[in-house]
Simulated assay, not measured.
Amino acid sequence: MPRTALIVAHGSPSDPDPQEAALRDLAVRVAALLPGWRIGGATLAKQGSFDAAVAELGTPWVYPYFMARGYFTKKVLAERAAPQGLRVLEPFGTEPALVQSAAHALRRELDGRGWQADGTTLLVAAHGSAVSRTSAESARDFAAALKSEMGFAEARAGYVEEPPFLADSAQGLGQAVCLPQFALNAGHMLEDVPEALAEAGFAGPVLPAFIDWPETPELIAQSLERQANSA
């Protein structure tokens, strides 16, 4: 059983270095919680990064830092891992503890503003896809689970790449908070999401991408340790 893991994200093909650095920093934070493990980070967008990280780590488990079981996790990443005999784990977005972690973050935001969940709308901003239902379904399920957990007045999702588009979902919400379902601070999170919210006149708080959540390294570390103990 390996005590090595490689955290892999898609990254930004047009500007791969910032996201590559962010993944490596995340790997350092996860490794600090797992004594005896070696953890690496790489993006698919950075040419040669995945193979170099695998060569350095040996035969690591591959941890997909993606929000859904979509095209990149089930096909692209699987095809990269298969020739080297690497085990690909379930992606970050499917972690059982993610809903509870998001609920804690949302409660902190609401408490800081003196808001009650039953008077607030939750807006989940997500990627969506023109070719796969997985991304949209994941976001809808996430929104529904958080509504059930916290008692929001309403929970809805809006997408960057398919209807209902985020600019439409974000209109006329009144008191609302936006939770972006994005792993990294890449193009969609930095450009498309704020542009859509501005177009809709959305004035509520917007939580950060998961890479900036203090709970994220612990979620990944707990997942790796749990799977190692059961292997």
Score class of each variant (00 low, 15 high):
2 P>L: 05
3 R>C: 11
4 T>F: 02
6 L>P: 01
8 V>P: 09
11 G>V: 02
11 G>S: 08
13 P>S: 10
13 P>I: 05
19 Q>I: 06
22 A>R: 04
26 L>V: 10
27 A>W: 10
28 V>Y: 03
32 A>V: 04
36 G>Y: 05
36 G>A: 03
36 G>F: 04
36 G>C: 03
39 I>F: 06
39 I>V: 15
40 G>R: 09
41 G>P: 04
43 T>G: 04
44 L>A: 07
45 A>Y: 05
60 P>V: 04
64 P>A: 07
67 M>L: 14
70 G>I: 00
74 K>C: 13
74 K>G: 11
75 K>M: 05
79 E>C: 00
85 G>H: 12
87 R>W: 09
89 L>F: 05
90 E>R: 14
94 T>N: 12
99 V>P: 02
102 A>M: 14
103 A>G: 15
106 L>D: 10
111 D>N: 15
112 G>L: 06
113 R>L: 12
116 Q>K: 10
120 T>D: 11
124 V>E: 04
132 S>W: 05
134 T>H: 09
134 T>R: 11
137 E>W: 10
138 S>C: 03
141 D>K: 15
147 K>N: 12
147 K>D: 12
148 S>D: 13
154 E>A: 14
155 A>H: 03
156 R>Q: 12
161 E>S: 09
164 P>A: 02
166 L>P: 07
170 A>I: 14
176 A>S: 12
180 P>T: 06
186 A>T: 12
187 G>F: 15
188 H>N: 14
194 P>F: 08
199 E>P: 06
199 E>L: 15
200 A>D: 08
200 A>F: 09
200 A>G: 12
209 A>D: 12
210 F>V: 00
214 P>A: 07
215 E>S: 15
221 A>D: 01
222 Q>Y: 01
225 E>M: 13
226 R>Q: 02
227 Q>L: 10
228 A>D: 06
228 A>T: 01
229 N>H: 00
